[in-house]
Design a protein around this nucleic acid. Structure first.
Length: 351
DNA sequence: AATCCAATCAACCGCCTTCCG
DNA sequence: ACGGAAGGCGGTTGATTGGAT
């Protein structure tokens, strides 16, 4: 289309399609199939570019299209997959039968984006937007997190999938310039009943750097761990350089561990008993995180399967592209032994 | 009833990738 | 291996629609 060779030789019509044009295209494709798109306009008697015909078919005429507004379930799928894949609309649309990439993209830009922003979430990274960067007129949920009278803290949720002894729990991977500055555990809410309920082992960390300033303060990247954390420093996997965290978003709100998976969520200490905006947000984030863990497990299983089969990766049984993007998502960086894995090649190499 | 404005959506544009000779 | 053609995709634009004033 636009300046494309297939359209440059002849006059092509632009703009909205008339019912007559639709009928011609529909009739031609249903009887002959589309074959080569560039030859369609001539064969179907249309003064359109081949690419325009293709687009019209894909986005409007093909019979398997699902019409009507998006359901809540579809919306959630879009959000979840977007969190992993980013603006890869065609990939996202594959998860929604009958929906087109254009439709998903439009829905994202017109609805979901605004909804996430109103929840204080960055639609690009899906992480909480730091208070000082949020729009001044954003929702009360954001004001809650920024309330100067509340102590900003992080809740560290360790997502355990098996009954791992407490002493084996490793702290999350944190970039040097983050963990060196700020965190100090306040409470370990379920340590005592860990063996009974290992899934909900929540540790609340005080963000000592962020107290009462909503994170606007500077920090010293050369400073050392607070004493209280240094006791578990042996378990902390060292990060050799911050460049290894280039894939992470600027704020490092969502971080992954190696043996365990963690999310770090901004929350407010002493929040009301009822479910407020922040808590709702945490629920939402948790849901997304669970999905990421699921996907991550799929990635690992997929790789292991392929390796066990002693064959090269087969794209028909394992979506390498998806796996790689999963590795890259939300700063998901895995490490095995002393090596950080930041690409699919690294990942495969280390198994 | 007229006007304005924001939301929505179809379609275009241009770049990148894949295919094929 | 190379280059041109075609297809695929994400970003953007502009027309339309519908609600508010």
């Amino acid at each position: 289309m636009g300046g494309h060779r297939c359209c440059s030789k002849q006059k092509v019509k632009k703009g909205l399609w008339s019912p007559e044009e639709d009928e011609k295209l529909l009739k031609h494709i249903t009887t002959h199939g589309h074959g080569s798109w560039s030859s369609i306009p001539k064969l179907a008697g249309l003064q359109r570019c081949g690419k325009s015909c293709r687009l019209r078919w894909i986005n409007y005429l093909r019979p398997d299209l699902r019409r009507g507004s998006f359901t809540e379930e579809e919306e959630q799928i879009i959000i979840d997959v977007h969190r992993i894949l980013g603006n890869r609309w065609a990939q996202i649309a594959k998860h929604l039968p009958g929906r087109t990439d254009n439709e998903v993209k439009n829905f994202w830009n017109s609805c979901i984006k605004k909804k996430l922003l109103s929840q204080g979430l960055d639609p690009t990274t899906h992480n909480l937007i730091p208070c000082h960067l949020r729009a001044p007129n954003s929702s009360n949920n954001n004001k809650m997190a920024c309330n100067q009278s509340n102590i900003p803290v992080f809740t560290l949720n360790s997502q355990m999938t098996s009954n791992v002894p407490l002493e084996n729990i490793k702290p999350p991977l944190l970039p040097n310039n983050y963990h060196s500055t700020l965190i100090q555990p306040i409470t370990t809410t379920t340590t005592s009943d860990y063996n009974q309920n290992p899934i909900n082992n929540n540790i609340v960390w005080n963000n000592i750097a962020n107290n009462n300033d909503c994170g606007q303060n500077s920090y010293d990247p050369t400073s050392t761990f607070p004493d209280v954390i240094s006791s578990i420093e042996d378990h902390q996997r060292p990060i050799s350089s911050t460049s290894e965290f280039e894939l992470l978003d600027d704020n490092y709100y969502s971080l992954w561990g190696t043996t365990n998976n963690y999310t770090v969520e901004e929350t407010t200490f002493g929040a009301p008993a009822s479910l407020d905006g922040n808590q709702l947000q945490q629920v939402q984030n948790g849901k997304v995180c669970e999905m990421e863990i699921e996907k991550m497990n799929e990635v690992v299983m997929g790789i292991e399967e392929n390796i066990n089969m002693d064959s090269s990766f087969d794209s028909s049984s394992f979506d390498l592209e998806f796996a790689e993007s999963t590795l890259n998502m939300s700063g998901a960086i895995c490490a095995r032994d002393d090596h950080l894995i930041s690409s699919m090649d690294d990942f495969a190499w280390n198994f």
